[in-house]
Design a protein around this nucleic acid. Structure first.
Lengths: 345, 345
DNA sequence: ACCGGTTACGTCAACGTTGACGCAGGAGGA
DNA sequence: TCCTCCTGCGTCAACGTTGACGTAACCGGT
């Protein structure tokens, strides 16, 4: 047995047919459970297939079939090593596998060039449909792919173009809810740390923040808002800046999980983590093990993934229903850090 | 534009050929950068392909080519939503993409039936090779697949059968090192919490524990060893059991990241987290944000993934070198919890 | 005995692409 | 001048499978 080259030729339907003494078409019928084959012929084919270890070649099959199905889905996320993305992938995968569908994956790092390239690689493998996290900025590549007729569902962020399903979460509403919670505890100076404003989710969360302030009768203080923070280190520095203000915030809202970590780090360094309230968007492992435990807004990632998978599978089956923009509710999980009242100076 | 059905027919080489006024073979040559086409014909083909939006059908191509390559790899891990697995996937993916190869994924949940099923699904899509985390117990399905000639590399756990590459880490050596560190601080009663002993990694880590004790001149106390723990809850209970002994351990070694979390939870509940030393196998996010920060053995996940991908790609290219069992060194990261000296009772 | 229908197969071509091979025309050498 | 080689194409068949269609045998009814 070699490691690689000299790979044994896989047995084909022709081989099975020869051994069973029937035509390849009959083998095809048996393999695909189609009617029109007698019980003994069926048995002979089954036996032959088993002794030869025959496995149908799905690429040849999908080439020839009229529906062209490859029973393969493309999944294009920002970064599959991110817990949010990988949990989403897992949910998609589970739902897909129950339909015998496998998943071809890619990480585009939110880079339009990379996304376009990966889209092309998926397309040349003729996946039946794609579940994609759109990159920030314009979605030209996605739109072009969609206009070619590729079934597509966007997750996490909706399309900027027409006629494409999406699954997102209650970014705005849940953020508003969190801000209202803080305000109800008496906080008047609530800081906001946000991701890149080019991202739709960031904009939504910021809008929710503004709405929350308005509902609580608070006026926006621009100096308490820091956006376009990329990663925990930026959030760490931004938090320090806010705390150094003459009138520092008594509560913080962090609009993304990495930013939550950065903010926590600064609060901890300054021994303020029990004195300044903190609510973060996105749950993360161990949030409940920290001191104080971190209050977060948790997206229902399994539901998002399952919904996206169900949508795309239905579209692939030919579902012609009007476009769907599903919104999966997120949940505010109170753990302690968000319930700290404002502290006297 | 419909959502799904009535999917536009993708343009083929025939369409391009017709528009460019050449034969399909000439189109094929241009697309594949093969020689034997004049500059103007090349230009006409390029233009035609561009205006039609032609993209080669890789499934048809791989069916016909002599090497049968589909430029697709199968990756079969235990659970893609686990941070270790997803980081590994990401590393594999990056290395593969630099060769234009895409990855077809699956999670087998350490279930032999599921693994066999997913293996078959990957095989019927004729992936060029597979990177697999073997399930605990016997590896029959893997071995059979391997014996059919499928190029294969195992990660995290080595094969129990011949002639198959693997990439693992220094489970035994690093565990020994950790135990020696604890012993050097004066610990005499070091507890061990282990995963299912059916897993190779668990056995290795347990062996390392034994070796560490022996090197330190300590005798094994069986009552301090708890194995076959599944998940954090089991570890939590096991830790409680150990602490309730007449002579409880003064230090703990947890052989897997979920077990580390469970042990930490119990230590914290009993307010012993600053009095009992703890070292865990596998790093995890936020380990540095806890109090005390958790000393861990960190596997070099990117290196493992990259190495596995390079191995499989080389084998696919026909590399006939003898079997490789790569071992990637893990690193002990001292953060505090592992440096707590034994406390007087 | 004859007809219409059904059952259980088989034959053939085609899906989109590429390997093997063929061929015309021009360049270059004897 | 003729032969050879090379360049730049084209033709054809085949990869493994399945849709469309053909057909022989048999059934029941008249």
């Amino acid at each position: 047995m070699d490691q690689a080259a000299g790979r044994r030729r896989e047995p084909t339907m022709r081989d099975v047919a020869a051994l069973a003494g029937v035509s390849t078409k009959t083998v095809s019928r048996v393999i695909n459970d189609q009617p029109g084959v007698g019980p003994e012929a069926t048995e002979r084919v089954r036996a032959a297939a088993h002794t030869l270890g025959f496995r149908p070649n799905l690429t040849a099959s999908s080439l020839r079939r009229s529906d062209r199905r490859s029973a393969t889905l493309g999944v294009l996320f920002e970064d599959l090593s991110n817990p949010f993305d990988s949990a989403l992938l897992r949910a998609v995968e589970d739902r897909a596998r129950s339909s015998g569908v496998l998943v071809l994956t890619g990480s585009d790092e939110d880079d339009p060039r990379l996304q376009r390239e990966l889209l092309a690689l998926l397309a040349s493998r003729r996946v039946d449909g794609m579940i994609v996290m759109a990159v920030g900025g314009h979605q030209d590549a996605l739109q072009q792919e969609r206009e070619r007729g590729t079934p597509m569902v966007l997750v996490d962020r909706p399309p900027t173009f027409a006629n494409t399903d999406s699954v997102t979460t209650t970014n705005r509403e849940s953020t508003r809810e969190a801000v209202l919670l803080l305000a109800s505890l008496g906080h008047r100076r609530i800081g906001f740390l946000g991701d890149r404003q080019a991202l739709w989710t960031s904009q939504q969360r910021y809008t929710g923040y503004l709405e929350g302030l308005a509902h609580a009768g608070l006026t926006l203080r621009e100096d308490l808002v820091m956006t376009d923070l990329r990663g925990p280190d930026a959030a760490e520095a931004a938090t320090a800046t806010l705390l150094d203000l003459a009138q520092p915030p008594t509560a913080l809202f962090t609009a993304q999980n990495l930013l939550t970590l950065g903010a926590m780090r600064t609060l901890r360094d300054r021994r303020l983590h029990h004195r300044i309230a903190l609510i973060g968007f996105d749950d993360f492992p161990l949030a409940d093990m920290l001191e104080p435990s971190v209050t977060v807004i948790r997206q229902d990632v399994p539901a998002i993934g399952r919904t996206a998978a169900e949508l795309i599978l239905a579209r692939i089956e030919g579902d012609q229903a009007p476009v769907v923009h599903a919104v999966i509710p997120a949940l505010l999980i109170s753990r302690g850090s968000g319930e700290i009242p404002p502290q006297p100076d």
